[in-house]
Design a protein around this nucleic acid. Structure first.
Lengths: 208, 208, 208, 208
DNA sequence: TATGAATGAGTTTTCATTCAT
DNA sequence: AATGAATGAAAACTCATTCAT
């Protein structure tokens, strides 16, 4: 009991630091902030940060991996289902956009400091990032086999374009280049899927 | 004459440093390299770098702005023409992809260290980056007015998706996630325009 | 009884930590190890170390003083006896070398971290170290008075040379500069006494 | 010319820092002083120390090696000569004691922070230290072959005892355990050689 | 123009020690 | 007695930038 309580308290403190780090990383950027900023935000001494994490890098690694694993799991689940490709892609886009909606800071940190930081954490976590692309490519490949999607675009390319579109929209929100009303965010899910699946061309519309 | 020659020599030296900086920034990343690395690559003393540039930041600013102005000019020219939207977008995609083909390092630096570095140079140059989005949005808006493109996607969103797709493909090459053969690079231009205009959906194909 | 038992248990724990400290100090060096390394070696939480010792320094102080008192006592006893100077010196050398033989780690720690650490613990314990020199000098002085040893070397110098030779041999073993077989270690006792008393010179031999 | 002058100035500054480091290391001990203490003593900015040395450790390495190479050279020269063993050993003892006389700080640093620091620099420089022992052992071995010195003590042991005696005397001075008058220092050279060669025993005297 | 010596602010990390439980 | 979470002082090292030559 005591041990459990202690363990729980420790886990809570770790989470407290992690949450503070996300806030600070999102606000100031990973490089522009000091470990003491994170500690201050969490209201603890900065030595405690090193009690729970071995380095500043490890904090960001943890933030990224924790959330990215959820994403990978979600995509894998979606992929294994029988839904039409559009629905599958919409589920993935929804998950990511809802993640941003619920906790914009985490997604901002992940995108800005990891998946788009090609010379630092992006390189470190490239294998994990690649996994996501691969899983999305699987969704596309299966749909192509079933004749649901055009087969003249490689699944790899399609996955890149699809995930890229999502990340781009999130970036648009992060930079306030796009409106962030709940309606717009909801519509964006559909628009991304539409853009990727149907394109902008009126010919696509005409065909319907 | 002597003055012109001297000026020319100075310009050459400046260019020498700029080119060296691009190489080093691309190889090591802006933050991971030192001013002396740039000087070494250029074969000059690092004090000289400060004769031509006021700071390390200014070197990257220069690299970015020089090339970005060309891009803005190209898009503006394309926009002012009468070509069909697809051709206009293809011209823009071609210009960027050819830029990468001719000098991958510059584009890598611009994308990785500026346009995707939301917490550092991306923030500084946001207005300039926005200009490009705006110009592309103009292309889309005009095409929508003329009925060439679906009107149910906002021009802003379309511009974001289009430029995002291009950047994503370049990132794919930078990370070796996509093949970089001349044929693939050529095909990519078309595929980006297709994906954005027609989408992946077979309905689009059927309609043709 | 209960109190005694408790006291005994406490003394045992203290000894456990002390022994662990000796091992760790010998292996990693005093400065290169952390208090937690000592605790780990002892199999206790590092907070407990502070229950028995007021500081990391005090652990080393204790290790040193415990053993050094034994040495001082031994030398005083030897000094108070009537044996010939050679026998007295041999007893002292034997005691130290046997100490090393029985527990090399303690002697290594004492020599490396205290008696030869002129800028840290050597300075702190200089008075205690001096006592040993003084007692040895007494042995020499008495022997000189009785005509057993040459009087043209000051007792202080002789004591320094004698103890220095012993420490040097121990250092030779610690660094594996000298062989450590039981025979060699036994012979070393005699050789130290011989070297100091008779010297290397063949004239000394001739005289025998 | 300009280049030579600049090089010379740089060498002077480096020497300035080196001399300051010796002073500070001798006064406070290597571990107890900060790099800024060295810079302050030299009257230069903190960063300049790192312009000339890659680390605090490298400063001490340089101090040690510079002087130790002189010692090795001297012993090698002495060894190659034809003088009697006593004269050779006296030359070596003289060189070291004169070194201390001329610049006590350097020798203090070398002995306290390197040759007797078994767990840090002593370990790093063990090969170099061993070289000195080996060269002295050569002197002894040759003398034993020529019948000048007793052959029942191994050259290795004799070298250890001889160098150990010198270091012990220097330590005696460093700690003010022995008088440091010029006469005493001069006499010490002879006494060390005497003690090692003739020993303390009166039998040795009688034999003369 | 060109050099590289000189400056010093800034940050991560370590770890002895304290203390609540 | 025992635990280990919490604290924060301390110090090495980096590197952009300045400046004398």
């Amino acid at each position: 009991m005591a041990s459990t309580a202690r363990t729980q308290a420790a886990a809570d403190k770790r989470r407290l630091i992690l949450d503070a780090a996300v806030k600070v990383f999102a606000r100031q950027g990973f490089h522009a902030c000091r470990v003491s900023d994170v500690a201050d935000e969490a209201g603890v001494a900065y030595g405690l940060v090193y009690h729970y994490f071995s380095s500043k890098d490890e904090i960001l690694d943890t933030v990224f991996l924790e959330r990215w694993e959820l994403l990978l799991k979600l995509i894998a689940e979606v992929d294994s289902g029988d839904a039409p490709a559009r629905d599958k892609l919409r589920s993935i886009a929804s998950f990511i956009i809802d993640s941003y909606d619920n906790d914009p800071d985490v997604m901002k940190v992940i995108i800005v400091e990891v998946t788009r930081a090609a010379n630092s954490f992006g390189r470190t976590h490239l294998p994990k990032i690649r996994e996501a692309y691969q899983l999305i490519a699987d969704v596309v490949a299966k749909a192509q086999e079933r004749g649901e999607l055009r087969a003249d675009v490689t699944p790899d390319f399609a996955a890149l374009a699809f995930y890229g579109a999502i990340e781009q929209v999130l970036t648009g929100w992060i930079f306030a280049l796009l409106p962030q009303s709940p309606e717009y965010m909801e519509a964006a899910k559909e628009q991304i899927v539409d853009t990727i699946c149907d394109g902008l061309d009126v010919i696509g519309l005409r065909a319907t």
